[in-house]
Design a protein around this nucleic acid. Sequence first.
DNA 1: TAAATTTTTTAGACAAGACTAAAAATATTT
DNA 2: AAATATTTTTAGTCTTGTCTAAAAAATTTA
Lengths: 217, 217
Amino acid sequence: MITLSEENYLKAIYHLGKQGTVAVSTNAIAEKIQSKASSVTDMIKKLADKNLANYIKYQGVSLTKKGRLAAALVIRKHRLWEVFLVNKLDFSWDEVHEIAEQLEHIKSLKLVNQLDAFLEYPTHDPHGDPIPDKDGNYSPIKSVNIFEVEIGKVGVLSFVKNATDAFLKYLNKNKLALGDTIKVIEQEPFDSSLTIETNNRKLVISKEVAQNLYLTL
Amino acid sequence: MITLSEENYLKAIYHLGKQGTVAVSTNAIAEKIQSKASSVTDMIKKLADKNLANYIKYQGVSLTKKGRLAAALVIRKHRLWEVFLVNKLDFSWDEVHEIAEQLEHIKSLKLVNQLDAFLEYPTHDPHGDPIPDKDGNYSPIKSVNIFEVEIGKVGVLSFVKNATDAFLKYLNKNKLALGDTIKVIEQEPFDSSLTIETNNRKLVISKEVAQNLYLTL
DNA sequence: TAAATTTTTTAGACAAGACTAAAAATATTT
DNA sequence: AAATATTTTTAGTCTTGTCTAAAAAATTTA
Ligand SMILES: [Mn+2]
Ligand SMILES: [Mn+2]
Ligand SMILES: [Mn+2]
Ligand SMILES: [Mn+2]
Protein backbone atom coordinates (compact mmCIF):
# COMPACT_ATOMS: atom_id res chain seq x y z
CA MET A 1 0.00 0.00 0.00
CA ILE A 2 1.29 3.41 -1.05
CA THR A 3 -0.13 6.36 0.87
CA LEU A 4 -1.43 9.58 -0.64
CA SER A 5 1.57 11.48 0.62
CA GLU A 6 4.01 8.91 -0.70
CA GLU A 7 2.34 9.14 -4.10
CA ASN A 8 2.85 12.89 -4.17
CA TYR A 9 6.55 12.48 -3.39
CA LEU A 10 6.95 9.78 -6.05
CA LYS A 11 5.38 12.09 -8.60
CA ALA A 12 7.70 14.96 -7.64
CA ILE A 13 10.82 12.79 -7.95
CA TYR A 14 9.57 11.40 -11.25
CA HIS A 15 9.02 14.87 -12.70
CA LEU A 16 12.24 16.39 -11.37
CA GLY A 17 14.59 13.57 -12.31
CA LYS A 18 13.79 12.48 -15.87
CA GLN A 19 11.16 9.95 -14.89
CA GLY A 20 12.97 9.24 -11.68
CA THR A 21 16.06 7.87 -13.41
CA VAL A 22 18.31 10.70 -12.27
CA ALA A 23 19.00 11.55 -8.63
CA VAL A 24 17.27 14.69 -7.40
CA SER A 25 18.12 16.81 -4.38
CA THR A 26 16.23 17.04 -1.13
CA ASN A 27 15.79 20.78 -1.56
CA ALA A 28 14.42 20.47 -5.08
CA ILE A 29 11.74 18.07 -3.85
CA ALA A 30 10.92 20.29 -0.89
CA GLU A 31 10.38 23.26 -3.16
CA LYS A 32 8.31 21.31 -5.68
CA ILE A 33 6.06 19.87 -3.01
CA GLN A 34 5.91 23.00 -0.86
CA SER A 35 7.40 21.41 2.20
CA LYS A 36 10.67 21.46 4.12
CA ALA A 37 13.93 19.61 3.49
CA SER A 38 13.65 17.75 6.77
CA SER A 39 10.22 16.41 5.86
CA VAL A 40 11.61 15.25 2.54
CA THR A 41 14.47 13.38 4.19
CA ASP A 42 11.97 11.56 6.40
CA MET A 43 9.81 10.58 3.47
CA ILE A 44 12.54 9.40 1.12
CA LYS A 45 13.73 7.06 3.82
CA LYS A 46 10.26 5.54 3.87
CA LEU A 47 10.21 5.26 0.10
CA ALA A 48 13.59 3.53 0.17
CA ASP A 49 12.36 1.14 2.88
CA LYS A 50 9.44 0.24 0.61
CA ASN A 51 11.75 -0.35 -2.32
CA LEU A 52 10.28 2.54 -4.25
CA ALA A 53 13.40 4.72 -4.21
CA ASN A 54 17.18 4.49 -4.27
CA TYR A 55 18.63 6.70 -1.60
CA ILE A 56 22.19 7.35 -0.50
CA LYS A 57 22.63 9.93 2.22
CA TYR A 58 23.68 13.33 0.92
CA GLN A 59 23.50 12.08 -2.66
CA GLY A 60 19.89 12.61 -3.57
CA VAL A 61 17.19 10.14 -4.53
CA SER A 62 16.03 8.35 -7.67
CA LEU A 63 13.23 5.86 -8.27
CA THR A 64 13.43 2.09 -8.52
CA LYS A 65 11.57 0.31 -11.29
CA LYS A 66 8.72 -0.26 -8.86
CA GLY A 67 8.72 3.43 -7.87
CA ARG A 68 8.75 4.58 -11.48
CA LEU A 69 5.75 2.42 -12.33
CA ALA A 70 3.87 3.66 -9.27
CA ALA A 71 4.62 7.27 -10.17
CA ALA A 72 3.59 6.75 -13.78
CA LEU A 73 0.29 5.25 -12.65
CA VAL A 74 -0.48 8.31 -10.52
CA ILE A 75 0.35 10.57 -13.48
CA ARG A 76 -1.78 8.37 -15.74
CA LYS A 77 -4.73 8.81 -13.40
CA HIS A 78 -4.14 12.54 -13.01
CA ARG A 79 -4.16 13.14 -16.75
CA LEU A 80 -7.07 10.83 -17.52
CA TRP A 81 -9.19 12.61 -14.92
CA GLU A 82 -8.21 15.95 -16.44
CA VAL A 83 -9.45 14.74 -19.81
CA PHE A 84 -12.67 13.56 -18.17
CA LEU A 85 -13.26 16.91 -16.48
CA VAL A 86 -12.67 18.90 -19.67
CA ASN A 87 -14.27 16.61 -22.25
CA LYS A 88 -17.22 15.28 -20.28
CA LEU A 89 -17.93 17.74 -17.49
CA ASP A 90 -17.27 20.98 -19.39
CA PHE A 91 -14.48 22.25 -17.18
CA SER A 92 -11.98 24.59 -18.79
CA TRP A 93 -8.33 23.60 -18.85
CA ASP A 94 -7.35 26.05 -16.14
CA GLU A 95 -9.77 24.57 -13.59
CA VAL A 96 -8.86 20.92 -13.63
CA HIS A 97 -5.44 20.55 -12.06
CA GLU A 98 -6.44 20.92 -8.42
CA ILE A 99 -9.29 18.46 -8.69
CA ALA A 100 -7.11 15.96 -10.57
CA GLU A 101 -4.60 16.36 -7.74
CA GLN A 102 -7.22 14.71 -5.52
CA LEU A 103 -8.66 12.23 -8.02
CA GLU A 104 -5.22 10.84 -8.90
CA HIS A 105 -5.15 9.10 -5.50
CA ILE A 106 -8.31 7.02 -5.91
CA LYS A 107 -7.36 3.38 -5.76
CA SER A 108 -8.90 1.00 -8.28
CA LEU A 109 -7.12 -0.38 -11.31
CA LYS A 110 -10.43 -1.23 -12.91
CA LEU A 111 -11.60 2.36 -12.49
CA VAL A 112 -8.56 3.78 -14.32
CA ASN A 113 -8.86 1.37 -17.17
CA GLN A 114 -12.61 1.74 -17.60
CA LEU A 115 -12.19 5.50 -17.50
CA ASP A 116 -9.51 5.22 -20.17
CA ALA A 117 -11.90 3.23 -22.37
CA PHE A 118 -14.80 5.61 -21.70
CA LEU A 119 -12.63 8.52 -22.84
CA GLU A 120 -11.64 6.49 -25.92
CA TYR A 121 -8.01 6.05 -24.99
CA PRO A 122 -6.78 9.63 -25.11
CA THR A 123 -3.03 10.03 -25.65
CA HIS A 124 -2.68 13.54 -24.21
CA ASP A 125 -4.25 15.56 -21.42
CA PRO A 126 -5.86 19.00 -21.92
CA HIS A 127 -2.47 20.70 -21.59
CA GLY A 128 -0.80 18.47 -24.18
CA ASP A 129 1.01 16.26 -21.67
CA PRO A 130 1.20 12.60 -22.72
CA ILE A 131 -0.82 9.98 -20.83
CA PRO A 132 1.20 6.93 -19.73
CA ASP A 133 -0.29 3.53 -20.58
CA LYS A 134 -0.88 0.70 -18.09
CA ASP A 135 2.82 -0.11 -18.09
CA GLY A 136 3.85 3.48 -17.52
CA ASN A 137 5.10 4.03 -21.06
CA TYR A 138 4.28 6.82 -23.45
CA SER A 139 5.65 8.01 -26.74
CA PRO A 140 7.97 11.00 -26.32
CA ILE A 141 6.64 14.41 -27.21
CA LYS A 142 7.32 15.30 -30.83
CA SER A 143 6.49 18.96 -30.45
CA VAL A 144 9.12 21.71 -30.55
CA ASN A 145 9.23 25.08 -28.89
CA ILE A 146 7.83 27.83 -31.08
CA PHE A 147 11.25 29.52 -31.21
CA GLU A 148 12.56 26.50 -33.13
CA VAL A 149 9.95 26.99 -35.86
CA GLU A 150 11.25 28.79 -38.94
CA ILE A 151 9.76 32.16 -39.89
CA GLY A 152 6.89 31.62 -42.31
CA LYS A 153 6.21 28.00 -41.27
CA VAL A 154 3.05 26.74 -39.58
CA GLY A 155 2.49 24.25 -36.77
CA VAL A 156 -0.27 23.06 -34.48
CA LEU A 157 -0.27 24.14 -30.83
CA SER A 158 0.00 20.82 -29.02
CA PHE A 159 1.56 21.42 -25.62
CA VAL A 160 1.90 24.20 -23.07
CA LYS A 161 4.88 23.80 -20.79
CA ASN A 162 3.62 26.00 -17.99
CA ALA A 163 0.12 24.97 -16.95
CA THR A 164 -0.35 27.50 -14.18
CA ASP A 165 -3.62 29.27 -13.74
CA ALA A 166 -2.23 32.64 -14.77
CA PHE A 167 -0.74 31.35 -18.00
CA LEU A 168 -3.79 29.32 -19.02
CA LYS A 169 -6.00 32.31 -18.36
CA TYR A 170 -3.73 34.46 -20.53
CA LEU A 171 -4.20 31.94 -23.35
CA ASN A 172 -7.95 31.89 -22.84
CA LYS A 173 -8.09 35.67 -23.00
CA ASN A 174 -6.11 35.65 -26.22
CA LYS A 175 -8.19 32.80 -27.64
CA LEU A 176 -5.28 30.45 -28.01
CA ALA A 177 -6.12 26.78 -27.53
CA LEU A 178 -4.57 23.37 -28.09
CA GLY A 179 -5.13 22.32 -31.69
CA ASP A 180 -4.89 25.84 -33.11
CA THR A 181 -2.81 26.19 -36.26
CA ILE A 182 -0.18 28.88 -35.78
CA LYS A 183 2.06 30.57 -38.34
CA VAL A 184 5.24 32.29 -37.18
CA ILE A 185 5.38 35.66 -38.94
CA GLU A 186 8.23 37.59 -37.40
CA GLN A 187 10.65 37.75 -34.49
CA GLU A 188 11.59 41.10 -32.95
CA PRO A 189 15.34 41.04 -32.20
CA PHE A 190 15.13 43.59 -29.38
CA ASP A 191 12.96 41.60 -26.89
CA SER A 192 12.57 38.26 -28.69
CA SER A 193 8.81 38.77 -28.97
CA LEU A 194 7.07 36.91 -31.79
CA THR A 195 4.36 37.92 -34.20
CA ILE A 196 2.15 34.94 -34.98
CA GLU A 197 -0.96 34.39 -37.07
CA THR A 198 -3.82 32.13 -36.06
CA ASN A 199 -7.50 32.02 -37.03
CA ASN A 200 -6.96 34.86 -39.46
CA ARG A 201 -5.64 37.34 -36.94
CA LYS A 202 -2.18 38.51 -35.98
CA LEU A 203 -0.96 38.40 -32.40
CA VAL A 204 2.23 39.55 -30.72
CA ILE A 205 3.45 37.30 -27.92
CA SER A 206 6.29 38.00 -25.48
CA LYS A 207 9.37 35.86 -24.99
CA GLU A 208 7.92 34.55 -21.71
CA VAL A 209 4.81 33.34 -23.49
CA ALA A 210 6.66 31.90 -26.47
CA GLN A 211 8.93 29.85 -24.22
CA ASN A 212 5.88 27.90 -23.07
CA LEU A 213 4.28 27.17 -26.43
CA TYR A 214 5.11 23.97 -28.28
CA LEU A 215 3.99 23.09 -31.81
CA THR A 216 3.88 19.93 -33.89
CA LEU A 217 4.94 20.52 -37.47
CA MET B 1 -12.65 22.43 6.32
CA ILE B 2 -14.04 18.99 7.15
CA THR B 3 -11.54 16.13 7.08
CA LEU B 4 -12.07 12.75 5.42
CA SER B 5 -12.43 11.07 8.78
CA GLU B 6 -14.89 13.64 10.04
CA GLU B 7 -16.98 13.12 6.92
CA ASN B 8 -17.17 9.39 7.60
CA TYR B 9 -18.38 10.00 11.15
CA LEU B 10 -20.97 12.53 9.95
CA LYS B 11 -22.29 9.98 7.50
CA ALA B 12 -22.53 7.29 10.16
CA ILE B 13 -24.44 9.56 12.55
CA TYR B 14 -26.72 10.66 9.72
CA HIS B 15 -27.57 7.10 8.76
CA LEU B 16 -27.98 5.79 12.31
CA GLY B 17 -30.09 8.63 13.66
CA LYS B 18 -32.79 9.45 11.11
CA GLN B 19 -30.71 11.93 9.15
CA GLY B 20 -28.90 12.92 12.30
CA THR B 21 -31.99 14.31 13.99
CA VAL B 22 -32.05 11.65 16.70
CA ALA B 23 -29.21 11.07 19.18
CA VAL B 24 -27.14 7.94 18.52
CA SER B 25 -24.88 6.07 20.90
CA THR B 26 -21.11 5.98 20.91
CA ASN B 27 -21.13 2.21 20.56
CA ALA B 28 -23.47 2.25 17.58
CA ILE B 29 -21.17 4.62 15.73
CA ALA B 30 -18.12 2.57 16.66
CA GLU B 31 -19.70 -0.56 15.26
CA LYS B 32 -20.89 1.13 12.07
CA ILE B 33 -17.52 2.65 11.39
CA GLN B 34 -15.48 -0.33 12.54
CA SER B 35 -13.63 1.52 15.25
CA LYS B 36 -13.62 1.74 19.04
CA ALA B 37 -15.88 3.66 21.40
CA SER B 38 -12.96 5.73 22.69
CA SER B 39 -12.10 6.87 19.18
CA VAL B 40 -15.71 7.85 18.64
CA THR B 41 -15.80 9.92 21.82
CA ASP B 42 -12.71 11.79 20.66
CA MET B 43 -14.17 12.49 17.26
CA ILE B 44 -17.62 13.61 18.33
CA LYS B 45 -15.97 16.18 20.58
CA LYS B 46 -14.23 17.57 17.52
CA LEU B 47 -17.48 17.58 15.55
CA ALA B 48 -19.20 19.44 18.39
CA ASP B 49 -16.34 21.97 18.52
CA LYS B 50 -16.85 22.60 14.82
CA ASN B 51 -20.58 23.08 15.28
CA LEU B 52 -21.37 20.01 13.25
CA ALA B 53 -22.82 17.94 16.10
CA ASN B 54 -24.80 18.30 19.32
CA TYR B 55 -23.13 16.34 22.05
CA ILE B 56 -23.93 15.90 25.71
CA LYS B 57 -21.71 13.52 27.66
CA TYR B 58 -23.25 10.09 28.12
CA GLN B 59 -26.29 11.10 26.09
CA GLY B 60 -25.25 10.38 22.54
CA VAL B 61 -24.81 12.67 19.58
CA SER B 62 -27.00 14.19 16.87
CA LEU B 63 -26.19 16.54 14.00
CA THR B 64 -26.65 20.29 13.78
CA LYS B 65 -28.18 21.80 10.66
CA LYS B 66 -24.65 22.40 9.39
CA GLY B 67 -23.67 18.80 10.14
CA ARG B 68 -26.76 17.42 8.44
CA LEU B 69 -26.04 19.39 5.28
CA ALA B 70 -22.41 18.29 5.28
CA ALA B 71 -23.45 14.64 5.71
CA ALA B 72 -26.06 14.90 2.97
CA LEU B 73 -23.46 16.34 0.61
CA VAL B 74 -21.14 13.39 1.21
CA ILE B 75 -24.02 11.00 0.58
CA ARG B 76 -24.98 12.95 -2.53
CA LYS B 77 -21.46 12.56 -3.88
CA HIS B 78 -21.31 8.87 -2.95
CA ARG B 79 -24.51 8.06 -4.80
CA LEU B 80 -23.79 10.22 -7.84
CA TRP B 81 -20.41 8.53 -8.26
CA GLU B 82 -22.09 5.12 -7.97
CA VAL B 83 -24.44 6.09 -10.79
CA PHE B 84 -21.47 7.26 -12.83
CA LEU B 85 -19.61 4.00 -12.30
CA VAL B 86 -22.58 1.85 -13.26
CA ASN B 87 -24.09 3.92 -16.07
CA LYS B 88 -20.96 5.26 -17.71
CA LEU B 89 -18.10 2.94 -16.80
CA ASP B 90 -19.97 -0.39 -16.97
CA PHE B 91 -19.42 -1.42 -13.37
CA SER B 92 -21.98 -3.74 -11.88
CA TRP B 93 -23.90 -2.64 -8.81
CA ASP B 94 -21.96 -4.88 -6.46
CA GLU B 95 -18.59 -3.34 -7.38
CA VAL B 96 -19.19 0.35 -6.84
CA HIS B 97 -19.59 0.91 -3.13
CA GLU B 98 -15.93 0.72 -2.15
CA ILE B 99 -14.80 3.06 -4.91
CA ALA B 100 -17.59 5.52 -4.10
CA GLU B 101 -16.39 5.36 -0.51
CA GLN B 102 -13.20 7.04 -1.77
CA LEU B 103 -14.73 9.34 -4.37
CA GLU B 104 -17.26 10.80 -1.92
CA HIS B 105 -14.42 12.73 -0.26
CA ILE B 106 -13.26 14.65 -3.33
CA LYS B 107 -13.73 18.34 -2.66
CA SER B 108 -15.23 20.51 -5.39
CA LEU B 109 -18.78 21.75 -5.45
CA LYS B 110 -18.54 22.40 -9.16
CA LEU B 111 -17.47 18.81 -9.75
CA VAL B 112 -20.52 17.39 -7.95
CA ASN B 113 -22.93 19.60 -9.77
CA GLN B 114 -21.40 19.08 -13.21
CA LEU B 115 -21.40 15.34 -12.57
CA ASP B 116 -25.07 15.57 -11.60
CA ALA B 117 -25.84 17.33 -14.89
CA PHE B 118 -23.71 14.88 -16.91
CA LEU B 119 -25.69 11.98 -15.42
CA GLU B 120 -28.92 13.85 -16.22
CA TYR B 121 -29.95 14.49 -12.64
CA PRO B 122 -30.55 10.94 -11.43
CA THR B 123 -32.88 10.63 -8.43
CA HIS B 124 -31.66 7.24 -7.19
CA ASP B 125 -28.38 5.35 -7.02
CA PRO B 126 -27.92 1.82 -8.45
CA HIS B 127 -29.29 0.26 -5.26
CA GLY B 128 -32.43 2.40 -5.25
CA ASP B 129 -31.25 4.82 -2.57
CA PRO B 130 -32.39 8.42 -3.17
CA ILE B 131 -29.82 11.07 -4.13
CA PRO B 132 -29.99 14.26 -2.04
CA ASP B 133 -30.10 17.54 -3.97
CA LYS B 134 -27.74 20.50 -3.40
CA ASP B 135 -29.65 21.46 -0.27
CA GLY B 136 -29.54 17.94 1.14
CA ASN B 137 -33.21 17.22 0.48
CA TYR B 138 -34.75 14.24 -1.22
CA SER B 139 -38.24 12.89 -1.60
CA PRO B 140 -38.92 10.03 0.79
CA ILE B 141 -38.90 6.52 -0.59
CA LYS B 142 -42.35 5.43 -1.75
CA SER B 143 -41.48 1.78 -2.03
CA VAL B 144 -42.78 -0.87 0.35
CA ASN B 145 -41.28 -4.13 1.50
CA ILE B 146 -42.38 -7.05 -0.65
CA PHE B 147 -44.12 -8.64 2.36
CA GLU B 148 -46.55 -5.69 2.35
CA VAL B 149 -47.60 -6.47 -1.22
CA GLU B 150 -50.85 -8.39 -1.52
CA ILE B 151 -50.81 -11.85 -3.06
CA GLY B 152 -51.47 -11.59 -6.76
CA LYS B 153 -50.38 -7.96 -7.09
CA VAL B 154 -47.36 -6.70 -9.06
CA GLY B 155 -44.73 -4.04 -8.32
CA VAL B 156 -41.41 -2.82 -9.64
CA LEU B 157 -38.24 -3.66 -7.74
CA SER B 158 -36.93 -0.21 -6.82
CA PHE B 159 -34.74 -0.55 -3.75
CA VAL B 160 -32.63 -3.14 -2.00
CA LYS B 161 -32.15 -2.49 1.68
CA ASN B 162 -29.03 -4.56 2.14
CA ALA B 163 -26.42 -3.58 -0.42
CA THR B 164 -23.69 -5.96 0.71
CA ASP B 165 -21.59 -7.79 -1.80
CA ALA B 166 -23.06 -11.17 -0.90
CA PHE B 167 -26.66 -10.06 -1.31
CA LEU B 168 -26.09 -8.19 -4.58
CA LYS B 169 -24.29 -11.22 -5.97
CA TYR B 170 -27.22 -13.42 -4.97
CA LEU B 171 -29.53 -11.11 -6.93
CA ASN B 172 -27.20 -11.14 -9.94
CA LYS B 173 -27.12 -14.93 -9.90
CA ASN B 174 -30.90 -15.04 -9.80
CA LYS B 175 -31.20 -12.37 -12.47
CA LEU B 176 -33.07 -9.96 -10.28
CA ALA B 177 -32.36 -6.29 -10.99
CA LEU B 178 -33.75 -2.87 -10.14
CA GLY B 179 -36.63 -2.08 -12.48
CA ASP B 180 -37.85 -5.67 -12.78
CA THR B 181 -41.58 -6.16 -12.53
CA ILE B 182 -42.38 -8.71 -9.84
CA LYS B 183 -45.66 -10.46 -9.05
CA VAL B 184 -46.19 -11.98 -5.63
CA ILE B 185 -47.64 -15.45 -6.16
CA GLU B 186 -47.69 -17.17 -2.80
CA GLN B 187 -46.38 -17.07 0.74
CA GLU B 188 -45.39 -20.25 2.56
CA PRO B 189 -46.61 -20.01 6.15
CA PHE B 190 -43.96 -22.36 7.53
CA ASP B 191 -40.83 -20.33 6.77
CA SER B 192 -42.30 -17.12 5.33
CA SER B 193 -40.65 -17.80 1.97
CA LEU B 194 -42.28 -16.19 -1.06
CA THR B 195 -42.96 -17.44 -4.54
CA ILE B 196 -42.64 -14.61 -7.03
CA GLU B 197 -42.91 -14.31 -10.78
CA THR B 198 -40.68 -12.11 -12.92
CA ASN B 199 -39.68 -12.18 -16.59
CA ASN B 200 -41.97 -15.17 -17.17
CA ARG B 201 -40.35 -17.42 -14.59
CA LYS B 202 -41.21 -18.39 -11.06
CA LEU B 203 -38.72 -18.00 -8.23
CA VAL B 204 -38.83 -18.92 -4.55
CA ILE B 205 -37.11 -16.47 -2.22
CA SER B 206 -36.38 -16.90 1.48
CA LYS B 207 -37.59 -14.64 4.24
CA GLU B 208 -34.07 -13.15 4.52
CA VAL B 209 -34.11 -12.19 0.88
CA ALA B 210 -37.67 -10.87 0.91
CA GLN B 211 -36.91 -8.59 3.85
CA ASN B 212 -34.47 -6.70 1.67
CA LEU B 213 -36.61 -6.24 -1.44
CA TYR B 214 -38.74 -3.13 -1.84
CA LEU B 215 -41.27 -2.53 -4.62
CA THR B 216 -43.12 0.49 -5.95
CA LEU B 217 -46.71 -0.29 -6.79
C1' DT C 1 -32.29 -0.25 46.47
C1' DA C 2 -28.12 -2.59 46.25
C1' DA C 3 -25.27 -5.40 43.24
C1' DA C 4 -23.86 -6.59 38.80
C1' DT C 5 -23.40 -5.41 34.09
C1' DT C 6 -22.92 -2.46 30.26
C1' DT C 7 -21.75 1.84 28.21
C1' DT C 8 -19.08 5.84 27.94
C1' DT C 9 -15.30 8.64 29.02
C1' DT C 10 -10.52 9.49 30.37
C1' DA C 11 -5.60 8.63 30.50
C1' DG C 12 -1.78 7.38 28.20
C1' DA C 13 0.51 5.50 24.10
C1' DC C 14 1.55 5.07 19.12
C1' DA C 15 2.13 5.87 13.93
C1' DA C 16 2.06 9.10 10.05
C1' DG C 17 3.37 13.27 8.42
C1' DA C 18 4.69 17.69 9.13
C1' DC C 19 7.64 21.50 11.39
C1' DT C 20 11.83 24.24 13.81
C1' DA C 21 16.38 24.44 15.40
C1' DA C 22 20.81 22.55 15.61
C1' DA C 23 24.47 19.51 13.95
C1' DA C 24 26.96 17.35 10.26
C1' DA C 25 28.38 16.95 5.61
C1' DT C 26 29.30 18.90 1.22
C1' DA C 27 30.33 22.66 -1.95
C1' DT C 28 32.19 27.16 -2.96
C1' DT C 29 35.27 31.08 -2.17
C1' DT C 30 39.20 33.26 -0.95
C1' DA D 1 44.04 24.50 1.97
C1' DA D 2 41.35 27.16 4.97
C1' DA D 3 37.40 29.70 5.68
C1' DT D 4 32.74 30.43 4.46
C1' DA D 5 28.37 29.27 2.71
C1' DT D 6 24.98 25.96 1.44
C1' DT D 7 22.71 21.63 1.71
C1' DT D 8 21.25 17.74 4.14
C1' DT D 9 20.39 15.17 8.14
C1' DT D 10 19.18 14.57 12.98
C1' DA D 11 16.79 15.56 17.27
C1' DG D 12 12.90 16.89 19.28
C1' DT D 13 8.05 18.62 19.01
C1' DC D 14 3.21 18.90 17.26
C1' DT D 15 -1.37 17.44 15.24
C1' DT D 16 -4.58 13.99 13.61
C1' DG D 17 -6.59 9.84 14.22
C1' DT D 18 -6.29 5.60 16.19
C1' DC D 19 -5.78 2.11 20.03
C1' DT D 20 -5.76 -0.37 24.99
C1' DA D 21 -6.60 -0.27 29.74
C1' DA D 22 -8.70 1.80 33.56
C1' DA D 23 -12.11 4.83 35.71
C1' DA D 24 -16.63 6.75 35.89
C1' DA D 25 -21.43 6.92 34.83
C1' DA D 26 -25.65 4.82 33.51
C1' DT D 27 -28.51 0.87 33.12
C1' DT D 28 -30.22 -3.61 34.24
C1' DT D 29 -30.90 -7.39 37.37
C1' DA D 30 -31.69 -9.36 41.57
MN1 LIG E 1 -2.01 14.74 -5.38
MN1 LIG F 1 -2.27 18.47 -16.96
MN1 LIG G 1 -22.96 2.76 -1.62
MN1 LIG H 1 -15.83 7.16 3.18
